[in-house]
Nucleic acid binder design. Structure first.
Lengths: 186, 186
DNA sequence: ACCTGAACACCGTTCAAGT
DNA sequence: ACCTGAACACCGTTCAAGT
């Protein structure tokens, strides 16, 4: 059948679903197995452990993000703004997965997750480098890219934690990103 | 004895220790009880559940942060910079507690944690409002404060997740904060 | 008021056994 | 190669009972 997929792909799909529904804590291997129609220890046939499964889910989300960056339209500073706004949208669509991606993975690195993070970083840097080159953004490209990324990330994370909207007059994440890029524009 | 403290305070202390050692996952009520010299269900005499205990730990950390903001020396933009840098230091000293404070608390709010977050936000806003008033920072105070907070928070969070230093030439969190405040200065 | 011991339901992980 | 069922150690939470 065309819709058929391997067990491994179904396990990843189901785990992502569970993360979206109730955060990483809601992902139990027993429930993953049940929803995928296999036993609760079948995941060990495809992943080293629970952390590995969650890291693969996170890596997939980061690859989606990188694809959005690459697909951002416009030129120069305008394109950087659109890429940054797509970051906010991505986080708003899957808040729990956003928290998972940037959560506590501990000291030991995970290859696939690290590679996906690197690719997303590169995609954002490419947007910014082009904008600095065509003269619509001013400053060292490395620093500008990191500032946009950090401010966008921080806005979203504070908003999701409920710590940004503590004051009634607090600006939104989108307003912050627009203001920063405005100030970085030549 | 002068060093004596109530069971409740010891439980909070021990839980904070465990968070620092191995993240929220390392905090088991059994280990908290053992280290505090009580049984594993004594915490339920003092806290609604595990989440409540962790939220109280997080609230204490946020009160420390607010105190550092208030204690920041200097004037105007200089004082904002020092407050922001103390945020970076605070996160670097207790990375796991930082992740806990801004972690996933779910939809239902926690009174003490919410109040502590509000107090920290107010302390940062007071620094920025003074700097805008004395003319060393330019812009709407609400927005400037939120930008500094968001960029500082995002830098630290990305650094702790290992996603900031993916490129060899990546700037540090401190460099990003300095550059932002430099650009916001008149 | 504060604490304990036993108990329940649940979870990650392992392993011998099945096809 | 892939999956299952039983088992182990562990955890959050509850509760009757103790002082």
């Amino acid at each position: 059948m065309p819709g058929e997929r391997g067990t491994r792909e179904r396990l990843i799909e189901v785990a992502a679903e569970l993360v979206d529904e109730g955060g990483p804590a809601a992902v139990t291997l027993r429930e993953v197995g049940a929803r995928a129609g296999v036993s609760h220890n079948t995941p060990y046939r495809h992943f080293a452990d629970k952390r590995d499964l969650l890291a693969v889910v996170a890596a997939g989300s980061l690859r989606d993000l990188a694809a959005r960056f690459r697909a951002a339209g416009g030129d120069g500073a305008e394109r950087v703004l659109r890429a940054a706004l797509s970051y906010l949208e991505w986080a708003a669509e899957h808040p729990a997965r956003f928290k998972l991606v940037f959560g506590a993975w501990g000291p030991e690195p995970h290859d696939e997750l690290g590679a996906a993070a690197g690719a997303a970083t590169e995609a954002m840097h490419a947007c910014v480098a082009a904008a600095v080159e065509d003269g619509s953004l001013a400053g060292d490209p490395e620093r500008v890219a990191a500032m946009v990324w950090a401010l966008g990330h921080g806005s979203v994370d504070l908003a999701l934690s409920g710590h940004l909207a503590k004051r009634p007059t607090s600006p939104t994440a989108e307003e912050l990103v627009r203001e920063l890029i405005g100030r970085l524009s030549v």
